[in-house]
Design a binder for these strands. Structure first.
Lengths: 190, 190
DNA sequence: TGACAGGACTAACGGTGTTAGTATAAAATG
DNA sequence: CATTTTATACTAACACCGTTAGTCCTGTCA
C-alpha cells in the first residue's frame, strides 16, 4: 500500500472544504486525513505541518475574495461599482465565514506571501477608488479606513454583536458604505 | 490536603493575567492550574470548564474597555472628548491585545451577558456621540459604523495588514476618526 | 534483476480539556 | 464533644490534538 494518489494540491483542496464545513477552530489534521482515507502521519510526506495548511487556506481565501470583488466590479467605474464591490465584500465574508476567518487570522506580520495576497485581494476595489482621482495619500488612507470598516462590521456582526438595537444591520451597512462613498467624492473634489 | 483557598474569583483573576501573558490561543487550563499550584482536575470544583473562563476573561475585557473609555472622556463632551475616546479605544486594544481578542472572539450570539457587557463597554463613547443631538436612528448607524471601523483597524493592523504602503498607520487612524467626526457633525446639523 | 526512492504504515510522545472515583479536612449537626 | 455531611483536593484515565521515528511495501530506474 504505497500509493494513494495523494498530493499537496489535493490535500489543500480538501482542507479548504473541511475548514468551511467544520469551522476554522475545529479543523484538525486527523479529520482531514480520515477524509482522504489516509493515516494522519502520511500527510507529512506531502506537507510540513498544519501551518502550511493554514497558509494555503488563507491564500485560497485571498484569491476567492479577489475574484469576488473582480466580478462585482466588472468593467465598471463609479458609484455603483463602488457600492456593489463593498456589498460583495460583506457577502463573501458572510457566505464563507470560516475561509474568511482563515485569511484574517493568518498573521501577515511574518509572512510576505500572505501580506501580498491580502493586499492584492483588495485590488479590484482599490482600482475603483483610484479612478475617482483623489491624491494618492488620501486614497491610501481612505482605502485602509474602508477596509477596516468593512472587516470590522463583518466580524462584529458575525460574532453576534450589534444586535441590541432593533435597527437592521443591513441598513447600517448601507449607511456605512454610502457614507464612505460620500467621503470619497469629497476627497476627490466630487 | 483538602483546602488551598482556591476560589472562582481567584481563578478568573489569574486566568486574565495568563491570557495576556501567554496569548489567547496558547492559554491552557493545565498551565493555569500549575500557576495556582493545583492539579488541573481541581479547577473543576470551582468552574464548569474552559468556556466559563473564556467568558469571564471577555467580561473582564468589556469592563476594562468601559473604564478606559470612561476615563478618556472624563466629564467632557464635544470634539476633543470624541477624538480622545476613539484614540483610547485603539490604545486599549493595542496595549491589551490578548484580552481584547478574548472579548471579540467570545461569540455574543449565544450569550446575553456578553452581548450586554460589550454593548455597555462602548457606552461612554456612545454618550459623547449622543450629545451631538443627531436623530436616534442616525446615531445608532453612526455608532455601529464607528465601532466597526475602530475594531477593524485595530485587528487588521495588529495582524500585520496595512503595511505594504509606507504611509503611517497612526496617520490613517487620525484621518479615520476625524472623518467620522465630520460625519457626526454632518448628521447632527453641525 | 537488483537497488533505490517515494509514500504509505504503526507506534509513540507530549500536549489539550474533561470525567470518575477516592481521600481528607473543614463545617455543620446531634 | 462526637458524628455526619459537605467541600475540595487528589490520582488515574479517556479521547482528542499535532508531530516524529522507524518500518515496510511498491513502483521506477539502472
Amino acid at each position: 500500500m504505497a500509493q494513494k494518489g495523494l498530493s499537496s494540491a489535493h490535500i489543500m483542496e480538501e482542507a479548504v472544504r473541511l475548514v468551511e464545513e467544520r469551522g476554522y477552530d475545529n479543523f484538525s489534521l486527523r479529520e482531514l486525513a480520515a477524509r482522504l482515507d489516509v493515516r494522519p502521519a502520511s500527510l507529512y510526506n506531502h506537507i510540513d505541518g498544519i501551518g502550511e495548511i493554514n497558509k494555503a487556506v488563507a491564500m485560497k481565501a485571498a484569491d476567492m475574495l479577489n475574484r469576488t470583488l473582480t466580478e462585482a466590479v466588472g468593467e465598471r467605474e463609479g458609484d455603483e461599482a463602488f457600492l456593489d464591490a463593498a456589498r460583495a465584500y460583506r457577502s463573501f465574508a458572510d457566505g464563507n465565514p470560516e475561509i474568511y476567518k482563515a485569511l484574517i487570522r493568518m498573521p501577515a506580520s511574518e509572512n510576505e506571501d500572505i501580506r501580498r495576497a491580502a493586499f492584492a485581494s483588495f485590488e479590484p476595489l482599490r482600482a475603483v477608488i483610484k479612478s475617482y482621482g483623489a491624491a494618492e495619500r488620501d486614497m491610501i488612507h481612505f482605502s485602509r479606513a474602508l477596509r477596516s470598516a468593512m472587516h470590522g462590521f463583518v466580524e462584529l456582526t458575525s460574532n453576534g454583536f450589534m444586535q441590541r438595537d432593533t435597527v437592521s444591520r443591513e441598513e447600517t451597512y448601507e449607511v456605512l458604505i454610502h457614507g464612505y462613498l460620500n467621503v470619497l467624492k469629497g476627497i476627490s473634489g466630487k
